[in-house]
Design a protein around this nucleic acid. Structure first.
Length: 238
DNA sequence: CCCTGATTCGC
DNA sequence: GCGAATCAGG
């Protein structure tokens, strides 16, 4: 088996989608996992977190993770969540530059140990590969986090939203919901004007026809998926 | 043992 | 360029 344009495309796609070399090899057929890894490297694909990691890298990675954890403790509050007042500012301790002695190291000229302040400008926030399942031919399905809506009915932190202000009393509140009216949320729980759509449902669905259109989006027919629109742009043309 | 990816090196 | 062999961590 040779590396045809198509097979390379599949390899790239799957590799970037976070599939393991074994999975890719199996999907392609006729190649070993080693062949896949070798090819991936030759293509210059971004290396993946390897189980085999040098001491040097391990330290760097650990350091990087610390930095990231301090820099961005919260990914982002879900839109429906109230942004809680921080009880106490996170105790951000200045990380003293760790200068470690390396026994097995015999560089004649030591580069000046760059005094690393608390915030090192990270060259590139190493992208964690996203796990996606892959269908026949290397078609990559969306990962759960990447699905288009349904975003909708969020698990609110507080089951009963803040009391609806009088001026919105005629809006459809949580208590007004039943199985005949559209439950598409408008606004955010906890906000005074939060309410639900309230239209008559599309029979058999929790939403009205219009909101069903948002909630349920058809997949492309399989035969049209040779070059699926990937979230990251798909195989690059060369 | 199984899995993983990285690297090496003869072809 | 290719990939088996080898390495080394989980």
């Amino acid at each position: 088996m040779s590396w045809t344009e198509e097979r390379i495309g599949t390899l790239k796609t799957m590799w970037e989608a976070g599939q393991t070399a074994s999975q890719i090899a199996e999907a392609l057929g006729g190649v070993s996992r080693n062949a896949v890894i070798g090819k991936a490297h030759r293509l210059g694909l971004q290396s993946r977190p390897s189980p085999v990691v040098s001491k040097e890298e391990a330290k760097a990675a650990a350091e990087r993770e610390k930095q990231a954890a301090v820099a961005a403790p919260e990914p982002e509050p879900a839109p429906w969540e109230e942004v809680a007042e921080p009880a106490a500012p996170a105790p951000v301790e200045a990380v003293a530059p760790v200068v470690e002695e390396d026994e097995e190291e015999d560089e004649p000229v030591r580069a000046a140990p760059a005094p690393a302040p608390a915030s090192i400008p990270l060259p590139e926030p190493r992208r964690e590969p996203v796990l996606r399942s892959v269908g026949p031919g290397g078609f990559v399905r969306q990962a759960p986090g990447e699905q288009q809506p349904p975003i909708a009915p969020a698990p609110p932190r507080r089951l009963v939203p803040a009391r609806t202000a009088p001026e919105y009393a005629d809006k459809t509140s949580l208590l007004d919901l039943n199985d005949r009216i559209c439950k598409w949320p408008l606004g955010h729980p906890g906000e005074p004007d939060f309410h639900f759509c309230g239209e008559k449902v599309n029979p058999g669905f929790p939403y009205c026809v219009a909101h069903c259109g948002h909630a349920y989006q058809a997949q492309l027919p399989r035969r049209d998926r040779r070059a699926p629109p990937l979230p990251f742009g798909g195989p690059r043309a060369r």
